[in-house]
């Protein structure tokens, strides 16, 4: 225990503060925070809230880089506060500010609503004609591993907004959708289960589409989940250009259907353990269901 205390070292957290009820302009306030090895920025913010200033506001939830709530500008670069160790970033002073390119609600809380509105505008969901099957699925759609690989990387997005904060185009352009919505747009554009390529094309060919991206690449550099939005946006452009010059594969392609019947009844592979006995009276296994 004493060994752990010896390893603590004081760091200055220079936090950008803004209270809409009191302040006209944001300002920086310094806090001295003892940090040990492995301590993340979020731990430091909790220390400030519990010991130094209970009015400090930020947004966080899962503490494990999954929910995407705690995106912040740490020493000038967007990071997740729960995912970034203090000692990894600085030896003395750590600048903590809200994500730029979003309005500040209070202290370190950005207003992510415009990003999510843009996300919705790009129809980020599977759209098919067989609505009944989508709402009440009877089986899985037939995608091969290559179909899955084409979009899976982009499906890991946690909507933290770090890419939006790093994008220089978005810094001067309100109309541009930005990396996160466009990556999700591409994720559904390329999904072989989707049947709305024509509708998506119309939206993406407009000014909210990918055309204002000129590959600064920062969205990919800062993404905490390795989603690579810059790649998705360029691949989206390629898909749209190929379609425009009538070389696109997706143009005539119908969305994939359900798994063919002959593939549904597969033999159980050896070595797979049996499911445990039901603990609820009257429960029926999926295989025995009508």
């Amino acid at each position: 225990m004493s060994n752990e205390t010896e390893q603590l070292q004081n760091y200055i957290f220079r936090v950008r503060r803004y209270d809409p009820a009191r302040d006209d302009e944001p300002y920086f306030e310094d806090f001295t925070v003892p940090c040990g090895p492995g301590m993340v920025v979020l731990d430091g913010l909790w220390y400030i809230k519990e010991h130094l200033d209970p009015t400090l506001a930020w947004r966080s939830s899962c503490r494990m880089g999954v929910c995407g709530s705690c995106g912040m500008l740490l020493n000038g670069k967007p990071h997740l506060a729960c995912h970034t160790q203090v000692r990894e970033l600085t030896k003395e002073i750590l600048m903590v500010a809200p994500l730029p390119n979003f309005d500040i609600v209070r202290d370190l809380v950005p207003d992510l609503a415009p990003m999510l509105e843009k996300h919705l505008k790009l129809n980020t969901r599977i759209i098919r004609e067989d609505v009944e099957e989508v709402l009440e699925p009877t089986d899985q759609y037939w995608q091969d591993p290559d179909d899955l690989t084409a979009y899976l990387q982009f499906a890991y997005c946690i909507k933290c907004g770090c890419c939006m904060a790093a994008c220089p185009t978005l810094a001067t352009d309100d109309i541009y959708s930005g990396p996160m919505p466009l990556t999700q747009g591409y994720r559904y554009l390329i999904d072989t289960r989707d049947g709305a390529f024509k509708e998506r094309k119309k939206i993406l060919s407009s000014e909210i589409g990918p055309w204002r991206c000129h590959y600064a690449g920062e969205c990919s550099a800062v993404c905490p989940k390795g989603v690579d939005p810059a790649r998705a946006i360029q691949l989206m452009k390629r898909e749209l250009v190929w379609d425009y010059i009538r070389l696109g594969k997706r143009r005539h392609q119908k969305p994939v259907g359900l798994l063919p019947k002959e593939r549904r009844a597969t033999e159980r592979r050896e070595g797979i353990a049996e499911a445990p006995e039901f603990t609820i009276d009257g429960a029926v296994s999926p295989a025995e269901q009508p």
Binding site: Y18, P20, A21, E25, P26, N75, G76, K77, P98, L99, P100, N101, F102, D103, I104, V105, P110, D111, A166, P168, L170, A171, T172, H214, Y215, A216, G217, E218, A221
Partner: peptide, 29 residues
């Protein structure tokens, strides 16, 4: 609710922080 606008503006093209070379090529382009 009053919010403070925090767009980087033209500053975002140049004073980005510790960025990679592609960002500076973007600005130079």
């Amino acid at each position: 609710i009053k919010q403070y606008p925090n767009k980087l503006g033209l500053k975002g093209w140049v004073v980005g922080g510790k960025w990679g070379p592609e960002r500076y090529l973007y600005t130079l382009h």
